[in-house]
Write a protein that binds this DNA or RNA. Structure first.
Length: 834
RNA sequence: GCCCGAGUGGCGGAAUUGGUAGACGCAAGGGACUUAAAAUCCCUCGCGGGAAACCGCGUGCCGGUUCGAGUCCGGCCUCGGGCACCA
């Protein structure tokens, strides 16, 4: 054994041995209790960053811990390998996306292995390989059959810089999530997946996500955005047509003073004969900073009071939500209020605050203006109805229900539920993605590629100019094909799939290992592998995927369930969203110049130190403040552990392992008893910190305390030596999930056979962990006045007597009467005097 | 604007979920070893007062409940995150 800790010698040695023995290979064995531990797979951008190190260190601790607890652990890794950066690299540097991607994967895989992560690499997936993406295509065809995949023309978010469509989730603050360009609206034919069909189920199941952070569940709920309301028809005056609106506030129906249509609404073209005017307003559709309207010159009739109100086209009314038309109640909706002010439309209050009604401050009957009050803004709260015919005087929440019932009874409207969630547009006008397996035939129209012809291979021989649309448009060998239906001339779909499709089911692909999943065959009976491994027991990743990836995965899993492939609905039982890695007050990024290079870190301190620091500096869910000095502290701690073993290498190697046996406490020195107790307390503390909340920071702190104590321990007897050995071996076992290399090396150095990773997690003895004495705190009137060492396990009466007999107590209580004495067992005594 | 979180030493963070505030680590100061430096080891380390024992104050601010509040309740302030014409 070397005198000094040198991770450069230790780490490659064990990485080599783990790989040679294929130690982390997982076998499908239904007799064992499984644990599926998964971290979000990376995009192979070139090199890993500290965020990855943290993410994968957290996951690896969990996987290694669960293995030591006797679980059959599935812990796989792969590559989210399709995506725009590869294509941008092709345009910029002339390197093919495939070459670029696979080279990055090779490099990054080396980096992950240098971190000592315990993956079963036999299950590695690479989403850009035809073996993977053929199943994307297969799922697409199944969805096409079931009507879940469909094509429609719609307004889509278009990134002019990336020249592609973006899903709503990919638009951040009106900008492209990837390149930050301002997104514009464009009308295009696109492929969609009908995620809205699962909206209700996805929402209802949110309440079952008890292992997820509440914050994430809430974000999912808000994104799905279920709201209850009514649809009401407003007849257009002088026409048989009517405008169907959706509102969540039927209680304000009497206050509707105009109706607005979305520019793309079919009735807009009908009511506005002037093409130029309509186009002008349509071009403003989706513009967020300004409300623009166009009066159609037409009127419609409010069905509850027969009132004639004007019809506008308004740029802020969304075609994709509700019916694409709204009733406007400026008195009770701020957006309508702003619009009414701009176009000088009347504002009529129909809900008054309850306290105003009591004070007689209600709007005069028939007038729009409240008596003694004028509205400066919309009143959106609950209140009491006024100016609302027979509903006046009713509370707004009750009126919402009553008016809805009234409308239904009269056949004027219908209760309706709406969701914010839209169908998922998956078409991307890009090369580096999964080809959508359909062809366009001159005779037959849209034809699905038959399953036997899958995969539709992405052609390699394309040119990347960076101009215009997808390079696939120039690839005649790809483009021109025969129609699977009639054999005639057909053209392939050139759009590829959103890469979020790839990541929506990769956790299912892992379950099959190297084997072809053969989903076609699995249709007949549910796959046993899938049934065994799914759902993922612990998923670990960044919170930035709280909506997009997680929602899509929940959707895909349900579709796969409904195809009869799995019985599992919810893919991730427990979710841990780790915080960001911060340095100098900002998230690490190249543009900020505050990145720490994992390669440098591993080279200088080793991966055990890198892992240890990123686990110790903060609990996993919180942001981690990077500190170069803190890293050195972690290295110092590992060196101290090394030195402890080195110093005692003679005795540690000599005695047989006694970790399981508690030596006779009588033969121990007092110090020996203390170390033994501390050892068992530490096993208990580390175990519960991992089990409870994955609070590795406090677990590591406890290990540091133990090592600090053991370092000063001078054994005086054979029994003491056994205690020392037990303390050291338990330290190494507890350390193994966090810093596996040094744990293996020192495990071997203390005369044990490899591998520590395969050992059982230590158990503590509650009796040995028990304190002999406790420090009794004495409070007078809640203030700390003294401390007393007392034997463990005294009765309340005995404790009280001791506390009252203490000299300190007498000083503080003299001349006062004792009103009350409160005893908190094992903690403190509070004496109340007055 | 709406919906969530979070505010504890010089810093990162602990505190059996109502019971000793500041574990552990970093930084800082002092000391030992060394020709010297690095490394290592030991001591001090919330603020104020005191030579000391000790005393007072202290978990963003104000109030409340309680024998006792970082923790519970009410009201504010600040910061962070998510959503944002969803009718």
């Amino acid at each position: 054994m070397d005198e000094r800790y040198d991770p450069k010698k230790v780490e490659p040695k064990w990485q080599k041995q783990w790989a040679e023995k294929n130690l982390y290979k997982t076998r499908f064995d239904e007799s064992l209790k499984k644990f599926y531990c998964l971290e979000m797979f990376p995009y192979p951008s070139g090199k890993i960053h500290m965020g990855h190190v943290r993410n994968y260190a957290i996951g690896d601790v969990i996987a290694r811990y669960k293995r030591m607890r006797g679980h059959n652990v599935l812990h796989p890794m792969g590559w989210d390998a399709f995506g725009l950066p590869a294509e941008n690299a092709a345009i910029k540097h002339g390197v093919h996306p495939s070459k670029w991607t696979y080279e990055n994967i090779a490099y990054m895989k080396g980096q992950l292995n240098k971190l000592g992560l315990s993956y079963d690499w036999d299950r590695e997936v690479t989403t850009c390989s035809p073996e993977y993406y053929r199943w994307n295509q297969w799922f697409f065809l199944r969805m096409l059959e079931k009507g879940i995949a469909y094509r429609k023309s719609s307004y889509v978010n278009w990134c002019p810089s990336c020249e592609t469509v973006l899903a709503n989730e990919q638009v951040i603050d009106t900008r492209c999530w990837r390149c930050d360009s301002v997104v514009v609206q464009k009308e295009l034919f696109q492929w969609f997946l009908r995620i809205t069909q699962y909206a209700d189920e996805l929402l209802a199941a949110c309440d079952g996500l008890t292992g997820w952070p509440e914050k994430v569940v809430l974000m999912q709920k808000n994104w799905i955005g279920k709201s209850y309301g009514v649809e009401v028809d407003f007849r257009i005056e002088g026409s048989d047509e009517h405008i169907r609106i959706f509102t969540t506030r039927p209680d304000t129906l009497f206050g509707a003073t105009f109706v607005c249509l979305s520019p793309p609404h079919p009735l807009s073209a009908l009511l506005v004969p002037d093409r130029v005017e309509l186009e002008a307003i349509t071009s403003q559709y989706g513009k967020v900073d300004e409300k623009i309207g166009l009066f159609t010159g037409r009127y419609c009739i409010n069905p509850v009071n027969g009132e004639k109100i004007p019809v506008y086209i308004a740029n802020f009314v969304l075609m994709e939500y509700g019916t694409g038309a709204i009733m406007s109640v400026p008195a009770h909706d701020q957006r309508d209020f702003d619009f009414a002010k701009e176009y000088d439309l009347s504002i009529r209050q129909v809900i008054a605050p309850e306290e105003n009604v009591g004070a007689g401050l209600v709007p005069a009957q028939g007038s729009g203006q409240p008596q003694g009050l004028s509205l400066h803004a919309a009143f959106e709260d609950e209140g009491v109805l006024v100016n609302s015919g027979s509903f006046s005087g009713m509370r707004s929440d009750a009126a919402r229900e009553e008016i809805a019932k009234y409308l239904e009874a009269k056949g004027l409207g219908k209760k309706m539920v709406n969701f914010k969630l839209r169908d998922w547009g998956i078409s991307r006008q890009r090369y580096w993605g999964t080809p959508i397996p359909v062809v366009y035939c001159e005779k037959c129209g849209i034809v699905a590629v038959p399953g036997k012809d899958l995969p539709v291979i992405l052609p390699e021989d394309v040119r990347f100019t960076g101009k215009g649309g997808s390079p696939l448009l120039d690839s005649t060998s790809f483009l021109e094909t025969a129609c699977p239906g009639c054999g005639g001339k057909a053209r392939r779909e050139t759009d590829t799939m959103d890469t979020f499709v790839d990541s929506s089911w990769y956790f299912i692909r892992y379950c099959f290992g190297k084997d072809e999943p053969g989903l076609d065959a699995k249709m007949k009976s549910m796959s046993r592998e899938l049934g065994y491994w799914m759902p993922v027991d612990q998923y670990v990743g960044g919170v930035e995927h709280a909506v997009l990836h997680l929602l899509y995965s929940r959707f895909f899993t349900r579709v796969i369930r409904d195809l009869g492939i799995t019985g599992c609905s919810e893919p991730f039982s427990n979710l841990l969203t780790q915080g960001m890695v911060i340095k100098d007050g900002a998230k690490m990024s190249k543009s900020k110049g505050n990145v720490v290079d994992p390669d440098y870190l591993i080279d200088r301190y080793g991966s055990d130190t890198s892992r240890l620091f990123s686990l110790f500096a903060a609990p996993p869910e919180k942001d981690l403040d990077w500190s170069d000095k803190g890293v050195e502290g972690a290295y110092r701690f590992l060196s101290r552990v090394w030195n402890l073993v080195f110093k005692n290498r003679g005795v540690l190697k000599g005695t047989g392992t006694i970790a399981a046996r508690g030596p006779e406490t009588a033969a121990l020195s007092e110090e020996g008893r203390r170390i033994l107790r501390k050892t068992h307390q530490t096993i208990r503390k580390v175990t519960s910190d991992i089990e409870k909340e994955y609070h590795f920071n406090t677990a590591i702190a406890a290990l540091m305390e133990l090592v600090n104590e053991v370092t000063g321990f001078e054994p005086r007897s054979e029994a003491d030596i056994e205690v020392l050995k037990s303390a050291v071996e338990n330290t190494l076992l507890l350390l193994a999930p966090f810093t596996p290399h040094i744990a293996e090396e020192l495990w071997e150095a203390t005369g044990n056979r490899p591998f520590i990773s395969g050992r059982q997690w230590p158990a503590w003895d509650e009796g040995l962990a028990k304190d002999e004495e406790i420090e009794l705190v004495i409070q007078i009137n809640g203030k700390l006045r003294g401390k007393l060492m007392v034997p463990f396990g005294l009765s309340d009466e005995e404790i009280k007597k001791l506390a009252l007999g203490d000299g300190k107590t007498a000083e503080w209580t003299s001349g006062k009467s004792i009103r009350k004495v409160i005893v908190v067992r094992g903690r403190l005594v509070n004496i109340v005097v007055g």
